[in-house]
């Protein structure tokens, strides 16, 4: 189950109805602690060290590379099933993400968006493996993506519109009466240079964090309520409770798959939207 196995291992005997002859103990919900796995190699200043997240990151990286080498292997004019899916993937990135936001001049960002989308999907999906966490439930990784996109928008914008031209277009949106700028400029400055990159990172992080915490609560609650060691009547009731928790777990598991894909899509779409504002002078 998605609840961290180590948490379960830490409290093996605590159930809703105490076993005969034992004192009961309270339910301890999975806490933020599950997002701080024990590092295997600690001691790096200002860092958690090498832990589960980095292993999962390497797995996600390998999966992305494998997927794309599989999609781009032995391509022919008449596509098979595998090639058809790969082409659909690229066309999805083009027709759903870059074309609607940036138009034809955004075609040069298709590889970047494909890479970001693929990597984010795999980094999210890792949370579906029982006992593992979504890589993006550590803020470092979404922040990396968002900061990368932010720097990219700055670089592209300044290259396209000139250093001051880009900033002017962003904080003084053209086509407004002069007095409005008193109101608009602070908001736009705050929005473009602080809120946008921060929320871009936090949106992905928060959904992954909350989703895996939710799954952990259901899994851990199901385990907590399953008290087979208790009196027979109570044990039967506890199995019912536990079954309800498992059903909830399965439903949210499916829901979580959807959320993971949608968040990856939204992240990529917003990245390409922000890039578009750098490409286009006036909006």
């Amino acid at each position: 189950m998605s609840a961290d196995a180590r948490i379960l291992a830490a409290e093996p005997g605590c159930h809703l109805f105490p076993a005969q002859g034992e004192a009961g103990c309270g339910f301890e919900a999975p806490s933020i602690g599950m997002f701080f796995p024990e590092p295997w190699l600690g001691g790096i200043p200002g860092s958690d060290g090498i832990d589960l997240y980095l292993v999962l990151l390497v797995v996600a990286l390998g999966a992305s590379l494998l997927l794309w080498s599989w999609f781009s292997k032995k391509l022919s004019l008449v596509p098979g099933r595998r090639q058809g899916v790969g082409e659909m993937f690229v066309l999805f990135i083009r027709d759903q993400i870059t074309r609607p936001t940036m138009g034809a001049k955004g075609d040069k960002f298709i590889p970047l968006m494909t890479a970001i989308f693929t990597l984010i999907v795999f980094m999210n999906i890792s949370g579906l493996i029982p006992g593992m966490l979504p890589v993006n439930s550590d803020l470092s990784f979404p922040a990396m993506f968002a900061l990368f996109i932010f720097v990219l928008t700055l670089v592209v914008g300044m290259r396209q519109q000139g250093g001051w031209g880009y900033i002017r277009n962003q904080i003084f949106p053209p086509g407004m009466p002069k007095p409005i700028y008193v109101l608009v400029t602070p908001i736009e400055t705050l929005s473009v240079f602080i809120i946008r990159p921060v929320t871009h990172a936090l949106r992905l992080f928060a959904t992954m964090f909350a989703g895996s915490l939710l799954l952990a609560v259901f899994a851990y609650g199901g385990w907590y309520m399953l008290s087979i060691g208790a009196e027979p009547a109570l044990a039967a009731v506890s199995v019912l409770f536990s079954g309800a928790a498992v059903i909830g777990y399965i439903l949210f598991f499916v829901f979580e798959i959807l959320i993971m894909l949608v968040q990856a899509f939204i992240f990529t779409l917003l990245a390409s939207l922000y890039l578009n504002q750098s490409l286009e002078a006036a909006h």
Binding site: V58, A60, W68, S69, L75, G86, I110, P111, A115, L119
Partner: peptide
């Protein structure tokens, strides 16, 4: 990781497709 995936996708996969 992003750089590796980007270079792989941008150099090999997407242009081929």
């Amino acid at each position: 990781a992003l750089a590796v995936v980007y270079f792989f996708v941008a150099r090999k996969a997407v242009p081929k497709v």
